[in-house]
Amino acid sequence: MFRTRITRRLPAVVAVAGLALAAAACGGESSNSAETAPQATADQLNPNADLSKQSLSITVWDGYTPKELPEKVKEKLKVSDMKIALHGTNEEAMTKLTANGDSGIDVAFVSGQYAQALNAQGLLEPIHPELIPNLANLYPEATQLSYDKGNKYSVPYTWGTTGICYRSDLVKSPPTSWNDILKPPSWAEKKVTMMTTERWLALPALKSLGYSVNTDKDDEIAKAKQLLMDAKPHLLGYDDTTFGDKLKLGEAMMVEAWDGWCPTTDEKQNIKFVVPKEGSDLWVDTMVIMKSSKNKEAAHALINYILDPAIHSWAAENINYKVPNKAAMDQVKIAKGSLLGIKPAELLNGESIIDLGQASTKFTRLQTEVGAK
């Protein structure tokens, strides 16, 4: 499994600037509804365009697509060239995509709330479904994502949720609530880890209090902060990268984890995963086409190619993330204990994380204050 998910979630100053700019584009106020984002005007595209006269440049996380993708795309689509630039975080991608009028990028891989922010700035080309027939391979649920209902400006690539990953042979009783890690029992003292990335640090506390993961209310965030501060002395620590290893070694009993990183297929079969009863999130990583692209037909053809079941299934098989592509998932051999079998309807029980615009700074501040020694 590639360790790409963590680095792309880490907060950075540029994220605040980029999301605040998105808020300004919407009138300067944060919004918990993707429905309010303005829609860019679609360009007229030629379905019969000669792709040999177009080239492709994409930005994506390292290890998130097959290394041989450029060669395969050039062979299949007959584009003149394909270049891949890497970004370590969503924030790096936002800097690259918003720094000037033309980033030179045709297709960008970013998480859903960042796609929403880019669209709010008018930087995305609306999706032309007639140029992506393989959209038909997506689960119906993949068209109902709150940050972009109907896939108007983004196409989902991977998706998943967050929960508690635990050693079934070490816990005295299986966790069922976020409070099991926020207020760990005495037998789990200093045997629990939580994540430190902004929105995921706050998630357990917000959900345990019955609040939205997308809240921008100061009083709710303050109560979540107090819960996190109270939990801090009882934790083994904060860990966004090696919590699975800590479970395997027995250093931790329970950890906050993204489903794809919970090592439930370990040969000992003693590691389990549960979504707490208070609910969780639905995270999605997407593909978007930049408005500034001069190769929009080729960009659509690339997304269509990636949605081919034989190609899209690579992500599930190699990075252990579910893909929102039914035809692709039907081809994946799911190992014993794997979480790849979580159904789309179960994922949709989670709350989609959306762009909060300027209010995102509140979570940056929370993370800084909770993380301070």
Score class of each variant (00 low, 15 high):
residue 100 N to Q: 08
residue 102 D to F: 02
residue 102 D to T: 12
residue 104 G to V: 11
residue 104 G to H: 05
residue 105 I to G: 01
residue 105 I to L: 08
residue 105 I to S: 04
residue 106 D to H: 02
residue 107 V to D: 03
residue 108 A to Q: 04
residue 109 F to Q: 14
residue 111 S to W: 10
residue 111 S to E: 08
residue 114 Y to P: 04
residue 114 Y to R: 06
residue 117 A to H: 03
residue 117 A to L: 12
residue 118 L to N: 07
residue 118 L to E: 07
residue 120 A to Y: 08
residue 120 A to V: 00
residue 120 A to Q: 09
residue 121 Q to A: 07
residue 121 Q to N: 07
residue 122 G to H: 09
residue 122 G to F: 05
residue 123 L to W: 07
residue 124 L to S: 09
residue 127 I to P: 04
residue 127 I to K: 03
residue 127 I to A: 04
residue 128 H to K: 11
residue 128 H to S: 08
residue 128 H to D: 12
residue 130 E to Q: 15
residue 130 E to D: 15
residue 130 E to H: 11
residue 131 L to T: 13
residue 131 L to R: 07
residue 131 L to S: 07
residue 131 L to W: 09
residue 131 L to A: 05
residue 133 P to V: 01
residue 134 N to I: 06
residue 135 L to M: 15
residue 137 N to R: 08
residue 137 N to K: 12
residue 137 N to A: 13
residue 138 L to K: 04
residue 138 L to V: 01
residue 139 Y to I: 00
residue 140 P to F: 06
residue 142 A to G: 10
residue 143 T to L: 12
residue 144 Q to M: 13
residue 145 L to H: 07
residue 149 K to T: 14
residue 150 G to L: 05
residue 150 G to T: 04
residue 151 N to Y: 05
residue 152 K to M: 08
residue 153 Y to H: 04
residue 153 Y to K: 02
residue 153 Y to C: 01
residue 154 S to A: 15
residue 154 S to H: 00
residue 156 P to A: 07
residue 156 P to D: 02
residue 157 Y to G: 03
residue 158 T to E: 00
residue 158 T to D: 00
residue 159 W to R: 02
residue 161 T to N: 05
residue 162 T to S: 03
residue 163 G to W: 01
residue 165 C to F: 07
residue 165 C to Q: 01
residue 166 Y to V: 10
residue 166 Y to M: 03
residue 167 R to Q: 04
residue 167 R to I: 01
residue 167 R to T: 01
residue 168 S to F: 03
residue 168 S to K: 15
residue 168 S to R: 13
residue 168 S to V: 13
residue 169 D to Q: 10
residue 169 D to A: 10
residue 169 D to Y: 10
residue 170 L to C: 05
residue 170 L to W: 09
residue 171 V to Y: 00
residue 173 S to D: 11
residue 174 P to S: 15
residue 174 P to T: 11
residue 175 P to A: 05
residue 176 T to E: 14
residue 176 T to I: 11
residue 178 W to N: 09
residue 178 W to V: 13
residue 179 N to A: 14
residue 181 I to M: 12
residue 181 I to A: 11
residue 183 K to W: 05
residue 184 P to Y: 07
residue 185 P to Y: 09
residue 186 S to R: 12
residue 186 S to V: 15
residue 187 W to F: 14
residue 187 W to Q: 14
residue 187 W to E: 14
residue 188 A to I: 12
residue 188 A to H: 13
residue 188 A to D: 15
residue 189 E to P: 02
residue 189 E to G: 03
residue 191 K to C: 03
residue 194 M to K: 10
residue 194 M to N: 08
residue 194 M to A: 08
residue 195 M to F: 11
residue 198 E to S: 15
residue 199 R to G: 10
residue 199 R to C: 13
residue 202 A to R: 03
residue 204 P to V: 11
residue 204 P to N: 13
residue 205 A to W: 07
residue 205 A to K: 06
